[in-house]
Nucleic acid binder design. Structure first.
Lengths: 200, 200
DNA sequence: CGAAAATGTTACTGGTCGGTAACATCGTCG
DNA sequence: CGACGATGTTACCGACCAGTAACATTTTCG
């Protein structure tokens, strides 16, 4: 409570390093970002970086964990905004993703890392997989609460559409197929919600 | 006609280099693959590589072009197998992609490169974008020929599902959402073909 | 205050990378 | 054969990179 007045770098060096790393990884890729550049962007230095993280790979893992935690917070916001309303959360989720598709700070760190971490044994891959499994469970649970008969099928459909929208954004830009993501995802939700057990 | 008997490396060094580069890029990433490793894998050497390509970036562009040409050939096969049958080609396309999703040699070089080529000005990005635009036109044309009313919408839906399936394969593995890609894509086709103008 | 812990600074290592120069070899064709 | 173009070999350059050591500084807290 007594710390951080208005100092240029108020958060701990560790947090600043993780944030700087995530930013640079996003902008220049994981392999294209050196630890010196990370330490520099974090207003810190390489030694402090290596006192907190045993290696660059270790830092990568921490970045992925932070990205996952950020998404956790986002899911909690959804639940708060539409308490108990599976369908509402589902549609809000889609809307939110569509809005952030074009952001520089898009939530595709997991996908991006999955492509760049070519070594199958990289510890980051397990973080990605665990996150994706949890995400799938959450979406399917939402579909179930929305009264959808085949919740798994709608869930996987939405997940494919979302990953596809992010990938298409990278390849084709904002005017490509990703431009109609929200429309398509909404249609899928409506179709499943209508043909399955009726919600409410 | 008089060349290549049964020699260990029958194709030209240039072709071998491109093929080796594509293979290594796929397995270890673009930034994770050195030119020495490429020349080595091509049973050639760095000097010959640099006599054919002015830089590694130049080689990357050529690899993307080759990948695009390979896909062109694949589209021609589709037309040959189902001449004039838009719906048949569409379904065969989906089936083929689903079959090759798990392949080590999956056709996600474009998506992978789009993620790894972080520099917006990299010449490879234009190749990717051009390819994706052409792909989109082709798919939409197929949908149109299949008698689908909103051909653009089904086209984009299928493109999102396909990119999503490839991305999900990278992140979640074969047992993730990509496992139901074929089922979902087929359902989308049937839904659109049924609700639009009836084919045949 | 004063000690201890955390952080910053500088300099260094060994390795890899993209790219080039000089020279040797091979294949083709007149 | 002989010459020429394509290919292979070796060695090198400068830049960058992950990681470490030794030392100086600041921050924290009893």
């Amino acid at each position: 409570m007594t710390t951080d007045f208005c100092k240029p770098s108020r958060r701990s060096p560790r947090d600043r390093i993780v944030e700087a790393a995530r930013d640079l990884f996003r902008r220049h890729g994981i392999r294209g970002t050196g630890v010196d550049a990370i330490a520099d962007a974090a207003d810190s230095n390489k030694m402090t970086l290596y006192r907190h993280f045993s290696s660059k790979d270790d830092l990568i893992v921490e970045c992925l964990r932070h990205a996952g935690m950020e998404m956790d917070g986002f899911w909690r916001e959804l639940e708060d905004a539409h308490p108990g309303d599976g369908l509402g959360q589902l549609r809000a989720w889609v809307r939110r993703i569509a809005e952030h598709l074009g952001d520089d700070r898009c939530q595709c760190e997991m996908m991006s890392a999955a492509v760049q971490l070519t070594d199958e044994d990289h510890p980051g891959r397990e973080v990605i997989r665990t996150f994706k499994d949890a995400q799938r469970d959450r979406v399917v649970e939402l579909c179930r609460r929305a009264g959808v008969a085949d919740a798994e099928l709608l869930g996987d459909t939405l997940l494919l559409l979302i990953e596809g929208a992010r990938a298409a954004q990278q390849s084709s830009g904002a005017e490509g197929p990703s431009a109609r993501f929200a429309e398509i995802a909404d249609a899928a939700i409506l179709f499943f919600a209508g043909s399955g057990a009726v919600p409410r």
